[in-house]
Design a protein around this nucleic acid. Structure first.
Lengths: 129, 129
DNA sequence: TCCATATTTCAATTATTATTGAAATATGGA
DNA sequence: TCCATATTTCAATAATAATTGAAATATGGA
């Protein structure tokens, strides 16, 4: 991920309503939440909600899936993972760093949720400098 | 960290110049970088640079330490850690989650850098939910 | 003291983003 | 078909943030 794209994602999350929406969806998990339910939970008028959902969708942090009259939104976890990886990448000259995929990638965890497999994690010390 | 504060941090990072400054400091490590050097590296006029440095300082993502005529800025890693922890907290209902301190806290790594101790990491499966 | 440089503050302008009511669209159910 | 509801689009306004030149401040060195 390059700086411009990351800034776009961070700006999208840098608004209280949108961050609340995103966090709600992150906690909700892959099944997502119907738009109107998000609005009820957060107390946002439909117009404002739609505006922010569109913004988050446009930058790729969430996605909406139509279900009849409803739209079910869910967090785009890979985007979040990449963003966090970007923020911490090559931290402190990359000395002795936990690799970004070990420190911040939540993909493995979600795979485990799906398969029921036990969680495992390796620590890889970066020998480079 | 609460949503409002996190949104403030994310908004601060959600600007290309500020994100570039922050990333430069994250990569530079705890020693930090003199303000004018940041400006040269990123090609920012001093006024604009000062504006963005003040913004990042105000929200607590960086700090400046005076050194004679110069100011040496460095990343506030604990703030970054808390922000990342906030983003991923209780992800997917907290089921089988890697704890946030294991997934995203870079404090341990920096402690290792300082002490020279070998990096170790434990995986703690969340039994709740 | 005087000068050069680092950084900030000020002020004015410009640009961008958020909010919201009203209207439009889409869909399922009666 | 007609209605109720979910969601979006439109349009106007309001609010906030970014940019930058010029001036001010601070500091070390000559």
């Amino acid at each position: 991920m390059e700086t411009l794209n990351a800034a776009e994602l961070l700006a999208a999350l840098g608004h209280e309503s949108r961050l609340s929406i995103f966090r709600l969806l992150v906690e909700a998990g892959p099944d997502g939440v119907i738009a109107s339910v998000i609005g009820e939970q957060l107390g946002l008028p439909s117009t404002t909600l739609s505006f922010h959902l569109a913004h988050l969708s446009r930058v790729g942090l969430i996605r909406g899936q139509k279900e009849g009259r409803f739209i079910r939104y869910s967090a785009e976890y890979p985007t979040m993972d990449e963003l966090i990886a970007f923020l911490t990448r090559n931290c402190c000259h990359g000395k002795a760093c936990l690799p970004k995929t070990a420190t911040c990638d939540t993909t493995a965890k979600r795979r485990e949720l799906a398969t029921g497999a036990a969680a495992t994690e390796k620590l890889i010390t970066n020998p480079a400098e």
